[in-house]
Write a protein that binds this DNA or RNA. Structure first.
Length: 906
RNA sequence: GCCGAAGUGGCGGAACUGGUAGACGCGACGGACUCAAAAUCCGUUUCUGGAAACAGAGUGGGGGUUCGAUUCCCCCCUUCGGCACCA
């Protein structure tokens, strides 16, 4: 073993040992507590990137730490192999998606091993393996039979030039990314899973997950969006049809001045039949993409249909408008508009000159009304606003003030902005004077009695559309028969295998282009039929992979082994998955449970969402105004003597480049740092150490090579310290009773560090502070020059313990140093975690901060058990304190034991 | 537009339950070693004033609660993540 740190040698040796001994392959073992640590499975894009390094290092640190805590740790890895990038690569490089994907997996598996991740590779799979997706197809058939999978029309982004469906990310500023054509909305039949049947359970389940970040739970709650309201039927005037709207604000019903329907709403279509202008408008509503962000930010446009509805309370007629912000797919495709009390309706009404009514006022207005109308003591009268404004008053001054309050409020609502808060009803006939809940109940009761309305719980959450018009995905196991309609493929005919040896040159799916592949016979009637050529959303595969890892080789989706391992004890992945993936993941777990395959209600008990990896960006403006981005590796940053950044130049030509800020590593900004280069240069442990040290896990991490060098320096110093120590003569055991002051101090710091590191790895998941504590300890042991017997003994205890404490983060280095310290080659994860010696933590004296009026004026060293009076006296006697208390009265002295003394003077 | 985060020295960050703001690392500066460089080691490093002692200011901005606020409350600004077909 060398005296200097050689990462490559050390890492190869440790990795060989782990591989040779199958160190991380695990089985169910009832004698040990289990720990299932799972990192989100990667898309095999071709090369390890820094986001992977970070995600998987966090998972590996937790896994190794938990194993050192005596748990039976499962940490698996696999590949989210279906998806759009393989199709794009196929077009670009003229290679089949399957071949491209599988060769990427080969390469990345090697990179993962080079990082030293402690995976049980015996459980590996790729989601594009028919052995994997056959179970997904079976589950879908089961859901179809249960009525949880169904088909309906829904809208997609349509590129009219390529004649293809586009993903939202392929729509840029309303145009197709490849063709530049204006994207249109098009309705096509698609398959859906009834996640809304589970909406309440998905909402309630969040309360059973204390180990999930509050931000994620809040986002999921808002996404599910439970709201209680009223469904109200409006009859269309001079006709026998009606339309239904849902509102959470029935208290504002008297302020409804129009209703708005989606462009695809049957009433709109009907009105457009003999109205060419309206038909044209509806046509323009088809333009643009389908994403919510785009719909919500587009200019709000509408047109009168000429049709009218009857207000269910007043009998007045209200116009029906078509509006581009109302969508057929969401809710009923129609909304009642209350411009006085809804921002969007207000904006729309002002734009088109539609009437605005004020029917809710705030407490200040109510007070003013009371003043104006003495007979309102028992509540607000029939038309209090109008009555009040023309009423007679005895006190002219008060009346004027009150009138001004009412008028200015009304002016604001009618002309400036909607009043959207809850308040008291006015201008609402019988409902005047009621508050939100009173008005809700009264109006609901009235409409229910009239058969025009019903209370309803509405969900923002929509059913999960799982159809994709793409080739590289799991085929949907359905056959279309002219007589039997949609028929699921029988179990014994599954899997429906996706052909992999295909030419993928254009935009069209090869299985859609191939007339032979789809030909089949109907499983029901035996007649000629056609297969579904859509494939599943790739979220389908990533929604249940965690369960499959527990049951490798099982003939069913999972088997009894799942009961041992599930739920996942620690799940780790990017915050960008906070809603979609994590909601589908929870939903699918409930589907597995209801199919009798798992017994828990939630798939994962603890969740860690790590931040992004970011880096500086550099560019030069091109002649055409576009930007050419340079990789940080090609650029030299210039600084002044104080360290301020003054500029940057391209290393190749020495000419300046512009600094574009710190952004998420991406191809488009060319600011990605290749982990492979870093591993080759510094070793995996240094890369792991930096990615855990540079930022807390949930924050974004800025890659900075100088920082990486600092980590390499730390590991070299640690190595040297151990090597120097083992060259010393043998030492006796530590005898706590025989230690002098400095030896005691070092030993106390060691045990404080053991306590902190364990807490930071386990409870806090604050790895950066754990590393900082270990660095501090190394700084101290480096200055500890005591070569006596007990000095060497304490140093040995410190260094050997540090090897164990660092092992989760830098396992290769620890593996080597453990041997350097005289142990046989072994798996450090099987060593017990160091125990804190409570006696070593004891102190005799503590330092208290002394403040005068909250400002620090000195410190005082006192015995741990010093009485309060002594502390107060010592603090007040400090010269630095007296300078500020002299000539003033001490009003109060606050003593927080072990922390602070605050002397309040005045 | 809606939902969720974040903002602290030149930089990344620490301060865990309201109690000494800036731990740890990077960078910068000074020094030692060296023929020299690299590496390594030692020291300084929030800002302003001051030779120093020391004083004042300071955690995105504005207000509030408290003996005491990076931490709690209200308003605002900026940046980032998600918005259902990127994964």
């Amino acid at each position: 073993m060398s005296d200097t740190y050689e990462p490559r040698t050390v890492e190869t040796a440790a990795q060989d040992f782990w591989k040779r001994t199958h160190a991380f392959e695990v089985r169910e073992d009832a004698s040990k507590p289990k720990f299932y640590c799972l990192s989100m499975l990667p898309y095999p894009s071709g090369a390890l990137h820094m986001g992977h390094v970070r995600n998987y290092t966090i998972g590996d640190v937790i896994s190794r730490f938990q194993r050192m805590q005596g748990r039976n740790v499962l940490q698996p890895m696999g590949w989210d192999a279906f998806g759009l990038p393989a199709e794009n690569a196929a077009i670009k490089h003229n290679t089949a998606p399957a071949k491209w994907t599988r060769s990427n997996i080969e390469h990345m598996r090697g990179q993962f091993a080079r990082m030293g991740f402690a995976y049980d590779w015996s459980r590996e799979f790729a989601t594009c393996d028919p052995d994997y997706y056959v179970h997904e197809q079976r589950m879908f058939v089961r859901l179809f039979e249960k009525g949880l999978a169904y088909r309906k029309n829904s809208v997609v982004n349509w590129d009219p030039v390529d004649q293809t469906v586009l993903a939202n990310e392929q729509v840029i500023d309303g145009r197709g990314w490849r063709t530049g054509a204006l994207v249109e909305k098009r309705e096509i039949p698609q398959w859906f899973l009834k996640i809304t049947d589970y909406a309440q359970e998905l909402l309630d389940g969040l309360d059973t997950l204390p180990g999930w970040p509050d931000a994620v739970k809040t986002m999921q709650r808002n996404w599910i969006g439970r709201s209680e309201g009223l469904e109200i039927r409006f009859d269309v005037a001079d006709s026998d049809v009606s339309l239904t709207v849902f509102t959470t604000r029935p208290d504002t019903l008297m302020g409804a001045t129009y209703v708005a329907v989606a462009a695809e709403h049957p009433l709109a279509m009907q009105a457009a039949k003999d109205n060419a202008k309206l038909a044209e408008f509806i046509e323009t509503c088809r333009q643009g993409g389908t994403s919510e962000a785009e719909l919500e930010t587009q200019e709000k446009r509408g047109m009168d249909t000429g049709l009218e509805v009857v207000h269910p309370l007043t009998g007045e007629t209200l116009p029906i408008w078509v509006a581009n912000f109302v969508l057929m797919g969401y809710g009923t495709g129609a909304v009642m508009a209350v411009p006085g009390h809804d921002e969007r309706d207000h904006e729309f009404a002002q734009q088109y000159g539609l009437p605005i009514k004020m029917v809710v006022v705030d407490a200040g207005v109510v007070d003013a009304l009371r003043e104006l109308q003495h007979d309102l003591a028992a509540g607000v009268g029939a038309d209090p606003l109008r009555n009040a404004l023309r009423g007679t008053h005895t006190d002219a001054y008060d009346a004027n003030t009150a009138v001004r309050v009412v008028e200015s409020f009304e002016h604001r609502v009618l002309n400036e902005a909607a009043f959207t808060e809850y308040g008291t009803l006015v201008n609402s006939g019988d409902f005047d004077g009621l508050d939100f809940q009173g008005a809700f109940d009264a109006i609901a009761a009235k409409l229910e009695a009239d058969g025009r309305g019903a209370r309803k719980v509405n969900w923002r959450l929509r059913d999960w559309g799982v159809s994709r018009q793409r080739y590289w995905g799991c085929p949907i196991p359905i056959v279309y028969c002219p007589t039997c309609d949609a028929v699921p493929v029988p179990e014994d005919q599954l899997p429906v295998v996706l052909p992999e040896d295909v030419a993928f040159t254009g935009v069209k799916s090869p299985i859609k282009a191939d007339p032979e592949w789809r030909k089949t016979t109907c499983p029901k009637c035996g007649g000629p039929a056609e297969r579904e050529t859509d494939t599943f959303d790739t979220f389908m595969e990533s929604s249940w992979y965690y369960a499959r890892y527990t049951s490798p080789g099982a003939a069913t989706q999972v088997d009894g082994r799942a009961d041992y391992w599930l739920p996942v004890d620690q799940y780790i992945g990017g915050i960008e998955h906070a809603i979609l993936h994590l909601l589908y993941f929870r939903f699918y777990h409930k589907l597995l449970r209801d199919a009798g395959l798992v017994t828990s209600d939630e798939p994962a008990t603890r969740l860690l969402c790590q931040g992004m990896v970011v880096a500086d960006t550099f560019y030069r403006e091109q002649d055409d105004g576009s930007r050419h981005w340079f990789n940080p590796a090609e650029v030299a940053v210039q600084r002044d003597e104080k360290g301020h950044v003054t500029g940057a130049v391209l290393a190749a030509d020495g000419r300046p480049v512009r600094i574009g800020g710190t952004e998420k590593m991406s191809k488009s900004k060319n600011n990605g740092v290749d982990p492979q280069v870093m591993i080759d240069k510094y070793g995996a442990d240094t890369v792991r150490l930096f990615s855990m040290f540079a930022a807390p896990p949930e924050q974004s991490l800025e890659w900075n090579e100088a920082g990486v060098e600092g980590m390499a320096r730390f590991l070299r110093r640690f190595w040297r310290e151990v090597a120097t120590h083992v060259a010393q003569p043998d030492h006796p055991e530590v005898d706590p009773a025989a230690l002098d002051g400095a030896q005691k101090d070092l030993r106390r710091q060691l045990h404080e560090t053991i306590r902190k590191v364990g807490d930071d790895y386990g409870r806090r998941q604050s790895f950066n502070t754990a590393i900082a504590a270990l660095m501090e300890l190394l700084n101290h042991v480096g200055k500890f020059g005591d070569m006596s017997d007990q000095g060497r003994a304490v140093r040995h205890e410190v260094l050997q313990t540090m090897v164990l404490l660092l092992n989760p983060i830098t396992p290769h280095t620890s593996h080597a140093l453990w041997q350097l310290l005289g142990h046989a080659e072994t798996l450090i994860e099987d060593q017990p975690w160091p125990a804190v010696d409570e006696d070593a933590l004891k102190r005799d004296a503590v330092t208290l901060a002394v403040q005068v009026n909250g400002k620090l004026r000195g410190t005082v060293e006192v015995a741990v058990d010093a009485p309060r009076e002594d502390i107060e006296r010592l603090a007040q006697d400090l010269p630095g304190v007296q300078a500020f208390t002299e000539g003033k009265t001490v009003r109060k002295v606050i003593v927080v034991p072990g922390k602070i003394v605050n002397i309040v003077v005045g």
